[in-house]
């Protein structure tokens, strides 16, 4: 089973590194020109989408960023897929259970790890456990696992059907899209079969989680549980290279673009950052751009071909 153990660690490593690299790519990008879209949610008083630009001498009225309001809005988006609900109800009926199911399954992984740690601490994780923690972990694991699986399966089938049938979606769906969804569907079906027929109380899964976090050899368990683990590992391996990372990207599209809303006020933090990017060298080659100079030089000169 060494191969599977190696696969699991490799998957975790690649997933961690690739995800971190992608987040870093977005986070380390230089400042950009402002590109907000109103309403900017931090300003809840102006729900209709008003901004400080509605004030005379607006620079005296820039509201403080309200992280709570931003998180509230993001929470609504993440927990309820509010945007899809409001603008694409037909898709929401499939997409929402799918996402909710996936959240529950991510929760399941956490619960399996917590359960494994509890067992290491001598707490029995079972319905009849003398420990309340053990009972709670057992019940929550069962709930997250089976509810998550049911929701994700239903949503996944719904999404596949939508992509195959909906004239708005079909032409824009590529073979890779079907493969991604097909793979997730296979993974869910195998996981469901593994739980129903070989590991109904997740004890084997918990044992696997325990061995992974303690770097011990994987426990002997049934073939279908091993298959489930292998498929999940492969999923982790390629997931960061797909647009399934929209999960993380959404933070940036909202907080760093749509809602950034941070004006360059004299003496403020933007001045230094702007100076830095204005010194970047430029290699665009159209005749009106003096390639090889800095951004600042080009922006203050006349276009070359017509220049004076």
């Amino acid at each position: 089973m060494l191969w599977l153990q190696i696969l699991v660690y490799l998957a975790l490593l690649v997933f961690g590194v690739a995800t971190a690299a992608k987040i870093w790519k977005y986070a380390s990008a230089p400042i950009h020109l402002r590109w907000e879209l109103y309403p900017v949610t931090a300003d809840r008083e102006k729900k209709y989408g008003g901004s400080y630009y509605e004030e005379m001498e607006w620079w005296k009225h820039v509201p403080k960023k309200n992280l709570f309001h931003e998180l509230l809005a993001m929470g609504e988006e993440i927990l309820f897929l509010k945007g899809v609900y409001e603008n694409n109800r037909g898709l929401w009926y499939a997409s929402y259970p799918f996402h909710l199911g996936l959240y529950a399954l991510v929760g399941l992984i956490g619960l399996l790890v917590a359960g494994a740690l509890a067992e290491m601490a001598g707490i029995s994780v079972a319905f009849a456990s003398p420990s309340l923690i053990g009972v709670a972990l057992y019940c929550l694991t069962m709930l997250a696992g089976y509810a998550g699986l049911t929701l994700a399966l239903a949503g996944c089938v719904g999404l596949l059907a939508k992509r195959l049938k909906d004239p708005a979606l079909r032409p824009m769906t590529s073979p890779a899209d079907y493969c991604n969804l097909g793979y997730i569907l296979t993974l869910l079906v195998v996981a469901g079969a593994a739980w129903l027929f070989a590991d109904p109380t997740f004890s084997a899964a918990r044992a696997v989680a325990g061995s992974v976090i303690t770097f011990q050899p994987l426990p002997e368990t049934s073939g279908i549980v091993m298959l489930e683990l292998a498929l999940f590992s492969i999923f982790l391996l390629y997931m960061p290279f797909t647009r399934m990372t929209h999960l993380f990207a959404k933070y940036f599209t909202y907080h760093k673009v749509r809602w950034e809303d941070s004006p360059n006020l004299p003496g403020g933090p933007w001045e230094g950052k702007i100076q830095e990017v204005l010194n970047f060298g430029v290699s665009w080659q159209a005749p009106h751009i003096q390639t090889g100079k800095t951004w600042a030089d080009i922006a203050t000169e006349m276009p070359q071909e017509e220049g004076s």
Binding site: N87, A249, F280
Partner: peptide
């Protein structure tokens, strides 16, 4: 260097469309 002006929003938009057609 060449596209600091919009690199971040561009990458985000190019890499994360889930093709939901909303």
């Amino acid at each position: 260097e060449d596209n600091w002006t919009f690199l971040q929003p561009l990458l985000l938009s190019m890499e994360n469309c889930v093709k939901c057609q909303t």
